[in-house]
Design a protein around this nucleic acid. Structure first.
Lengths: 194, 194
DNA sequence: AATCTTGTTGTATCGTCGTTCAACAGGGGG
DNA sequence: CCCCCTGTTGAACGACGATACAACAAGATT
């Protein structure tokens, strides 16, 4: 009688994906302290050797997780909304972006950036894209009108306000509802763009 | 011949203060991962047993560090400025509050709040005070005029913007100058209060 | 100078960490 | 059906984690 296989073989890409997902879940559950080889592999249903095998080291996985977070966030938050800033605000506070787990993962990752040169480089690259995109959107919305503030500075204000609202929600989910966050952002934009 | 004392005895309060300071330094230097008994005691020039002795556990010290951060921040940022919001903005971005080490420590602590009920309780207590203080200041500055927004919501916007600017600077100090941060805040307030 | 209180030390213990590596086995190509 | 490539396993390792605790000593009191 043939016994069932003791494990399944995946392609390298599939397995990397699984490990990234598991790493994310651990980060969300217990912060950076829970981002351990044992916990991640248990979460992924794999053995301890796999992280080293697929990512060279635990730090390699952490970098991959950070890039994945940004890619997913951008996919939701930064499509081309043209001049429709309200749509962009809605996207930035979409459920999947501001759910407890996602924000907890962001917070854990942010706290590692200052101590990890690779994460720092990744952060700078993506953050510049983020800011550039916000600036472009605001430029379109301004549509030639002269504002009481430069578009660059308004974009910085916009992005910083979003970051602050995210942060508050990340630290204490109860504190801030999705609706309040949205409204605050829109109020701010209206004050400069009407 | 009499040899010099092998260690000095401090009062419990003095030693607690020293350990808190050392814990803060470790947090600033290497994030929560560097907040270990060995490193903290080395930094404080004390032996390993002292943290347990004075704070019951490492977590006890972490809570004390968090409270100390808030107390110091409030001492600088929240005296009574009356209606002078510009002075409050200046205070919030005072050098000692936005220097690299202080912000790195905040970031490390924030990332622990969701995983630590004691920190969470502390956070809620202080954050409510922070928000209430901002609301009162804005109420005075509004001075009976009717604004395009409620004072509570404007206060939330104000505090969130500050948090966002702090966060960006905490993650990447190079990104944001003190002056830019100040100006962005003042621009935002002017848009609603002029 | 003897005594007592109490802050301090440092070892011992046990758990968990990240990484290595030799052996293993899934499953497609011959 | 066998072979071989390669993804996978899990034990072994040395380093480091937090805490407990018994011995110690500083320094005020007497």
């Amino acid at each position: 009688m043939s016994t069932s296989p003791r494990f399944r073989r995946y392609t390298a890409d599939q397995r990397r994906e699984m490990l990234i997902e598991a790493g994310l879940a651990c980060l969300a559950r217990g912060g950076i302290a829970a981002f351990t080889v044992d916990k991640i592999c248990a979460e992924a249903g794999a053995s301890r050797g796999l992280i080293t095998h697929h990512f060279k080291s635990k730090d390699g996985l952490l970098s991959a997780v950070y890039e994945t977070m940004y890619e997913r966030m951008f996919a939701v938050a930064l499509p081309d909304y043209g001049a429709d800033l309200a749509a962009m605000v809605d996207a930035v506070f979409a459920d999947e972006l501001i759910e407890k787990d996602a924000l907890a993962a962001w917070l854990a990752l942010w706290s590692e950036v200052p101590n990890n040169p690779t994460l720092q480089a990744t952060h700078r690259r993506y953050y510049a894209r983020y800011l550039a995109r916000a600036t472009a959107a605001i430029e379109q919305a301004a549509a030639g009108r002269t504002l009481a503030i430069s578009t660059e500075r308004l974009a910085l204000m916009f992005v910083s306000l979003i970051d602050g609202l995210w942060l508050e929600r990340a630290i204490d989910t109860r504190r801030l509802s999705r609706d309040t966050a949205r409204t605050v952002c829109l109020d701010m934009l209206r004050a400069f763009l009407r």
